[in-house]
Write a protein that binds this DNA or RNA. Sequence first.
DNA 1: AGGATTGGGCAAGAAAAACTTCTGGAGCCC
DNA 2: GGGCTCCAGAAGTTTTTCTTGCCCAATCCT
Lengths: 310, 310
Amino acid sequence: MERLPPLNAIKAFEVAARAGSFTLAATELGVSSAAVSQQIRNLETWFGKQLFVRSGNRIALTDAGHAIYPQTARALGDIAAIGRRMLEGGLRTRLVVSVPFSLAELWLAPRLAVLLDAFPQMAIDVRVEDDPVDLMRQNIDLRISYGDYHYPGLKLVRLVHDDVLPVCAPEFWRRHGNGDPSLADLHESLFIHTNWGPNYASHPTWAEWFTASGGSRAPDPSHGRRVGLSSLAIASARLGLGIALGQRVMAQADLEAGRLIALSPVSVRLGHPYCAFMPPAKAERADVAGLVELLVKAAPATSGKVGAPR
Amino acid sequence: MERLPPLNAIKAFEVAARAGSFTLAATELGVSSAAVSQQIRNLETWFGKQLFVRSGNRIALTDAGHAIYPQTARALGDIAAIGRRMLEGGLRTRLVVSVPFSLAELWLAPRLAVLLDAFPQMAIDVRVEDDPVDLMRQNIDLRISYGDYHYPGLKLVRLVHDDVLPVCAPEFWRRHGNGDPSLADLHESLFIHTNWGPNYASHPTWAEWFTASGGSRAPDPSHGRRVGLSSLAIASARLGLGIALGQRVMAQADLEAGRLIALSPVSVRLGHPYCAFMPPAKAERADVAGLVELLVKAAPATSGKVGAPR
DNA sequence: AGGATTGGGCAAGAAAAACTTCTGGAGCCC
DNA sequence: GGGCTCCAGAAGTTTTTCTTGCCCAATCCT
């Protein structure tokens, strides 16, 4: 095959020709109008032919531009079709979602329940595994992770930037609380410490929480209970084993049901947001997009910003 | 139209799939194999699907890769066809060549004569005009200019890096020369000075030539003859009006025919090469490519380097 | 076997392409 | 005529792409 014209310029041309305006084309492409102008000129220089006539603030296709537009549209349409074809690739696919251990039970499950309630026939696989995950080899459609720095090249959607606050079971508080929500006098052994394991280091500590609440206590982890999973901390607190720094999104249901109580409005943000990652092509699948949307909407209280594809 | 897969990655994929090797594909694309490897991975990440299986130093298309290859080939072929179509755009076109005044008569004309001798029915327009020229608006296929800095975006081919040397008519030398090829004693009024006009400043002067030849004379332009065109300097010398610093490519024919004699082997290079410019798409037209090739070959003595497309 | 060769992966920095911002000018509309 | 919209152009910045240099695995070749 001989040398091809610059493909991105072809793309810009197709959009501009269809839109009849560089500005509209720019909007559609998500760039500035000057960028479109440059790409078009680029293509004109390549061909040595004008494709648009400019008259003041208006443009129109030249004869040459008219001649090639349908071909560009068809070729690009074909390429778009390739993308679509990739998604179907077995069409009968289930939606495969991968989450870290900590999120599976207390965060994803209830949200999926909502979704499955609405679409009972929806086929979803949930895989529970820690980062890093190879989405390609395992045919995963959507990965949810802590932090927005994993998986370069994948489309990224920020779901929720969670925070932690002290929670415990109501009976526990009745027995040990002494009515002091500053927790200043609570015995060290009653604190539950969460350890996120070797790969993560940004989970807030009790010391940080005390600092944020204006105190200065720093309970010694070696004296209290220690758990290796944030969802386990919640579960432990629910069972009356102590006071945990529980993540809000995980404790929510227990708090509303009265199985847990929050001992203070003071909370500490996690170091990173929870994010969804997916191959850009799969972001257009209706089921993937729908699930992501649900997950974003489900937590409007603390966050929900949509990131640009990378 | 929805989001398109990265087009350059598609291109890399098509070539790699056809070549069956990243390295061969890299050669065809004129890039390194690592670049191809990256583009393919890029596309795989976009789709969330492997397109090649890698086993050691060998690659093979996956089922998914196999499935999309024909579509990519067709779409890219369509786009290549667009390029070809642009060239034909009236098919009945003549070849339009644009040259600066100085080159038209003594350089281009004899070379075209060779070409037209071989292909008498070839339709060529020669336009004579100075830089800058708008190739697009005037439908020019090939522009020849002094210097390689004009016309960004156009494909550039360096034709010849010329030099100047002192020439005069044989009778003139018999009458005024005194047998002294160092020209040290020649009367100032017998030097012909070339002035390239307001846009150019790099034409070698007599002072430079004397320096190059080991002397130190600097004839005063206000005393000798002055011409505003390098071809006119040659013509003047041929007519016995004085000694000119003549460009080799222009004096060649007169030197061989004995109408001019070179007074010294010492020459001074011009500041820039002569270059051909053309829209990249037109570089593939057989007539354009043929003419450029002829022009390059016609001057192997002093240069003939081919530049990369810009 | 065992060394040499070929072809691809990976990471860092370099080069090239694309984009943004700002400014200016031309036509259109009131 | 004045304001508005839209495109062009230049300069500077960001992003993408490519190269370089190194490694490893499989193959090839005595």
